[in-house]
Amino acid sequence: MTSDLRVSMLQMTSGNRHAANQVTVDEAAHRAAADGCDLLALPEAAGLMNKDKEDARRQITTEAEDPFLLTCRGLAAKYGLWIQPGSTPVKAADGRYLNHGTLIDPSGAIVARYDKVHLFDVFLEGRKPTGESDRYAPGTEAVLVDTPWGPWGLSICYDLRFPHLYRDYAKAGATVLFIPSAFTVPTGRAHWEVLLRARAIENGAYVVAAAQVGDHEDGRTTWGHSLIIDPWGEVVADLGGDAPGQISVTLDIARVAAARQQIPSLENERDYTFTRIGAHETTPA
């Protein structure tokens, strides 16, 4: 297994057209290659962020025809980069869309596909209900992909709140967990960093969480604070919550095994039964 993984993480304010987002990623790939990186990581909805249903419908297409993914594949081959494009919407078989993540290797081939399993159907106080399942079909598979730096686990945004997904990845040997996101401001302020650090600590793995930031063309505002966290839970990169940006860091993959050796919770895990004790009525004496 290769030890050093040099990662470039991009924080974006994605727009409602593929073309502008393609330009952003083209520039980011050039910077990542110039900085000697192995991997470029992008946020959720990197390819398109558009809540106008009709306008989005006219743009969203299949994976094979998606212009953003075609650009990412071309850039991976041009620069010899691995690219984790975060996610972008593509057509699903039932007429809805898939929040679609991929991993592209340095030849430009898509070597792994992951569709967001847990959809953001929530009811935040003071805001309209968020029903991602109104437009998106859920994925049904967790995806772990082998790389020269060990297995990598794929996920997207709201998946972060379902720790068993990452536990399963870690038990299967994952060294890096990808959590590209577009967090809202209230949930980001309250939960983003603490949940990401928990996923890294409890699994002894690196977490790479590229995020959307700021005010978007479609009216949304996102939290930002793209983070990379090491297997001990230390934040090694934070792009802040004010503006787009990019940062490159080198991850020592050997630290995964070291963290798991010091706190072997994956090995210490035990099976158990579940018992629920109800309230008992008492008879007066």
Rank of each mutant, 00 (worst) to 15 (best):
P89K: 01
L165R: 08
A112L: 09
S87N: 03
D121K: 09
I104R: 00
R135E: 15
L81P: 05
A76S: 02
P129E: 12
H164A: 13
R161P: 06
T102G: 02
P89F: 00
L154Q: 05
L119E: 01
E65D: 15
P163S: 08
G153T: 06
Y97T: 02
R161S: 13
H100V: 00
K171V: 01
D121Y: 06
L124S: 14
R135V: 13
P163N: 04
A137Y: 05
R135C: 14
I110E: 05
A112F: 07
C72F: 08
F68E: 13
G131E: 11
P67Y: 08
R167C: 07
G150V: 01
D134E: 14
R73I: 11
G86K: 01
L70W: 03
F162M: 08
L144A: 04
P151S: 04
P148S: 09
G74F: 06
V117T: 05
D134Y: 08
P151Q: 04
D134K: 13
H118W: 03
H118G: 04
D66Y: 12
D159S: 05
Q59N: 11
L119T: 00
P151F: 02
V145L: 11
G101R: 00
A142V: 09
G139K: 08
V117N: 01
Y79N: 06
I83A: 02
K128T: 09
D94A: 10
R167Y: 12
K78M: 05
R113Y: 07
N99P: 04
G131W: 04
Q84C: 07
G80H: 06
E125W: 15
T140Q: 13
D146Q: 15
Q59V: 08
V90W: 02
G80Q: 05
G80L: 01
T61D: 12
I104A: 00
D159T: 05
W149A: 00
R73Q: 15
Y169I: 01
K128E: 13
D146S: 14
D94H: 12
T140P: 07
F162A: 07
Y166G: 03
E141N: 08
A77P: 03
H118P: 02
L154H: 04
E63H: 14
Y158W: 14
H164I: 06
W152Q: 10
G126E: 10
G108R: 07
P106W: 01
E63A: 15
V145C: 13
A64W: 10
P67H: 11
L75C: 05
Y158N: 14
A109S: 13
R113W: 05
P163V: 05
P138Y: 11
G131C: 12
G150N: 04
D146Y: 07
P89S: 04
D105C: 04
I156C: 12
L75M: 12
A137G: 09
